[in-house]
Simulated assay, not measured.
Amino acid sequence: MTRSVEAVDPALLIEAHQIVTKKRGTHDSSIILEGHFLERLEPEAILALQYRMLALANLVKGDTKSPWVIFEKGKDYRLVNETIFRAAAITPLIH
C-alpha cells in the first residue's frame, strides 16, 4: 500500500539537515531528529522529515548528473543549492 508523505516547512527540512550534519556519527539520523524535534513537532511531522531527508540523500548521492548537485573532483562531498531543500520539502512524495 502506498501512502503520501506530508509536505513540511522548508525551514524545518533545512534545520533537520543542519542538526543531522552537526551531530553526524553520534547517533542514527532518526534518533537525532526525534531528539531535536520531539517537543516541537508531532510524530507524523518528524517521520515526514525523515522520509524527505532520505529521499533527498538518495538524490544527492546518485551518480546521475543534475543541475541541482555540484560534484567537486577529488572531494567526498557534494554541494547543493538551498533551493533543492525547499523543493524536497513540498514536492509530492509517496512511500
Rank of each mutant, 00 (worst) to 15 (best):
M1T: 02
M1K: 01
T2V: 09
V8I: 10
D9C: 09
P10F: 14
A11N: 10
I14V: 09
E15Q: 12
E15W: 09
Q18M: 15
I19Y: 03
I19V: 06
V20F: 14
K22A: 03
K23Q: 09
R24K: 13
R24W: 12
R24Y: 08
R24F: 09
S30D: 13
I31R: 15
I31D: 15
I31A: 14
L33P: 13
L33A: 02
H36E: 14
F37T: 00
E39K: 11
E39R: 13
L41E: 00
L41K: 03
P43Q: 02
P43A: 09
P43V: 14
A45E: 08
A45W: 12
I46L: 02
I46P: 04
I46D: 04
I46R: 00
L47K: 05
L49W: 15
Q50F: 15
R52I: 09
L54I: 10
L54D: 14
L56A: 04
N58D: 10
N58G: 02
L59S: 10
V60R: 08
G62V: 02
G62L: 06
G62I: 00
D63T: 02
D63E: 01
T64Y: 04
T64S: 05
S66F: 11
V69C: 15
V69Y: 06
I70M: 07
F71D: 08
F71S: 10
E72W: 14
E72K: 06
E72A: 07
G74I: 10
D76V: 15
Y77D: 01
R78A: 04
R78F: 14
R78G: 05
L79K: 05
T83G: 01
I84R: 14
F85Y: 06
F85V: 07
F85S: 00
R86S: 12
A87Q: 14
A87N: 14
A87V: 11
A88E: 11
A88V: 10
A88D: 13
I90P: 00
T91L: 10
T91A: 02
L93M: 09
